[in-house]
Design a protein around this nucleic acid. Structure first.
Lengths: 254, 254
DNA sequence: CCATCTTTGTGCACGCGTTCACAAAGACAT
DNA sequence: ATGTCTTTGTGAACGCGTGCACAAAGATGG
C-alpha cells in the first residue's frame, strides 16, 4: 500500500469502518472482472480469494453495507457492483484537477483507471509557462494562474498534487481556498489543511524503504544463524559515515 | 496512503511493530530536513509536528529502536538519522529493477527520491522491442528476454512492477523465480507469491475512490439536514444504470 | 412438507496500535 | 551538592480490526 494516513481520527464514518472503506475498491475491482465474464453470483469464499482477503473479513465488510447476500447461494454480482459503487460515490462524476504536470502528473493523466471509475480529469495545471497549451493525454495544460477559476468553473472538489515538494503546501493552500475538500498528495511533504479537508498521501519512496527493512531482516536472519555476537549496536557510533549523501526529500519529476 | 497490505500476518519483525516501521521513513525525512538546516537536536514534540504525528506515538516508536534520546534535551538529529537509516537498511545500496517502462515506469525512473535514499535503479525492463535501447532517465531500457540474467548479474532483490495488469502476475513469477524477494506492485492486480516474498501494492485509483467516499459523505451530511426521508435505498434497484461503463481494471500506461 | 445442505451474517474473543499520564532521568542554575 | 525544570521512556487502559465458529436463513431434492 502506499502511505497516507493523514486522515480523520478514525471516526467511523456513518458506521462503516475506515478499514472496510479501504477494501471496498478491491472488492469492486474483483466484482467488475466477474461481471465482465458474466458470472451471475459469487460466494464470499470465491470473491475473497479474488480480492486477496479472508472470507470472514469480506462478509463482515459487506454486513456494514447491509444484507445483500443470499444464504446458500452467495452474492449477486451485478447488484453488489451497484451497491458498492453507490456507497463509494462512484455513480456520480467526480471532476479532478492534477497540479504539476511532470512525469508523474502525465502518468496519472494517462492512467485509464481514473476515467473508467467515475473520475474525470477536468484540468491539468502547471506553473511552467512553457507547459501551457501543451497536450497531455488529450488535454491542454493550463497555467496555474487560472487555478481558482478552473476549480470553481468545473465544480472541482478533488485535487491531485504532483508538484515538487517545495511548492506542494502553497498549491494545497490555493486548492483549499478555491473550494477543494479532498486532496491526493504525491509530493513527499506533510500537508497542513483545515478541518473538513481530507488528505491522502502516496509516497513512492516510503514504500521502497519499508520493503528494504523487511529485505534486510530476511538477509539478517541467515547471517544471525552464524554469529552469536553482540546484537546491541554498541554505544553511539558518532558516525561521519551515514547514508550515501545529504539526501533531500528529492525534487519530484514535475 | 496507498493501499497494499498484502503483507506478513502482522508478525512483529524483530520486535518492531509494522505500524512503526511504516512511520520510520516519515521521521527520517523530517530529520533529514533538520539535518540540512544544521539543527543539532530536536524534541519529540517538534519532530512529531514536522512528521505530522502525535508526539507520544513518536516516542513510543523510537523506544522500539532503543533509548536514543536525552531527557530534558531531546534527540540528536545526526545520530537519529543514522540509527533510523541503519534500521531501515538504507546504509547499504539496494539495486532495483523497474519492469514496464510506460508513463509511470518512466516517472519512477526519474524520481529522485529513490537514488538519494540507498536505492539504485539497476535496470529498466520492457517487453516492447521498440523500447529496447531507448534512454530513460539516463538508463538504457532492456528487453524483458534478459530479465533473469539482469536480476542475477546485479544481485537484485527488489523489483518494481509497472506493467499492464494482464501481465503483472507473469512478470511477478519471473522476478521471483530469478531471485527477487520484495516486490512493489503498481499494477491493479492481486499478486500471488510464495512465502518469504514481500509484496507491497500502490493503487492510484483506490486512493481516489476512498477520497470520493468521504467527499460524498461530506456532501450527504448537508443534504441530510433537509430531508428526513428513507435512508434505506429501497429494495433491489435491479439497475441497468450502474457505473459509467463496463470498467475493466483499466490498462495501465505502460 | 420435511430433511438436508450450503452459505451468509454475526457474537465473541483476542491482539495490535494508540493515547494518556506519570515516574525516572538528566540538564542547568545556584 | 541540591533543587528545579524539561523532556524522555513506558505502564496501563482503551478502542479498532481480525478471525473463529456457529446459528439462522434460504435453496434444493425427495
Amino acid at each position: 500500500m502506499a502511505t497516507g494516513r493523514t486522515h480523520r481520527p478514525a471516526t467511523r464514518s456513518r458506521g462503516i469502518p475506515e478499514a472496510t472503506v479501504a477494501r471496498l475498491p478491491l472488492y469492486l475491482r474483483a466484482l467488475t472482472a466477474l461481471s465482465e465474464r458474466s458470472v451471475p453470483t459469487v460466494s464470499s469464499e470465491e470473491l475473497a480469494a479474488a480480492a486477496g482477503v479472508n472470507s470472514a473479513k469480506l462478509r463482515k465488510d459487506f454486513s456494514y453495507l447491509g444484507s445483500y447476500g443470499t444464504r446458500g447461494v452467495g452474492y449477486d454480482v451485478e447488484y453488489l457492483v451497484y451497491q458498492i459503487s453507490r456507497e463509494l460515490g462512484l455513480t456520480q462524476d467526480w471532476p479532478v484537477v492534477i497540479v504539476g504536470i511532470g512525469n508523474l502528473g502525465a502518468a496519472l493523466a494517462n492512467y485509464g483507471g481514473f476515467a473508467s471509475r467515475g473520475f474525470r480529469v477536468a484540468a491539468l495545471i502547471d506553473a511552467d509557462p512553457a507547459m501551457a497549451g501543451k497536450q497531455v493525454a488529450g488535454i491542454s495544460v493550463q497555467h496555474s494562474d487560472g487555478l481558482e477559476k478552473i476549480i470553481s468553473d468545473n465544480g472541482v472538489s478533488i485535487g491531485v498534487i504532483t508538484t515538487p515538494p517545495g511548492v506542494a503546501q502553497a498549491v494545497c493552500d490555493r486548492l483549499v481556498a478555491a473550494g477543494v475538500t479532498s486532496i491526493l498528495n504525491f509530493a513527499p511533504t506533510v500537508l497542513t489543511v483545515p478541518d473538513g479537508v481530507d488528505v491522502r498521501k502516496v509516497d513512492l519512496s516510503i514504500e521502497l524503504q519499508i520493503l528494504a527493512f523487511h529485505e534486510q531482516r530476511k538477509a539478517g536472519e541467515e547471517a544471525a544463524a552464524n554469529e552469536n555476537a553482540v546484537p546491541a549496536p554498541a554505544g553511539r557510533a558518532d558516525s561521519t559515515d551515514q547514508g550515501p549523501d545529504g539526501d533531500v526529500p528529492a525534487v519530484m519529476p514535475a
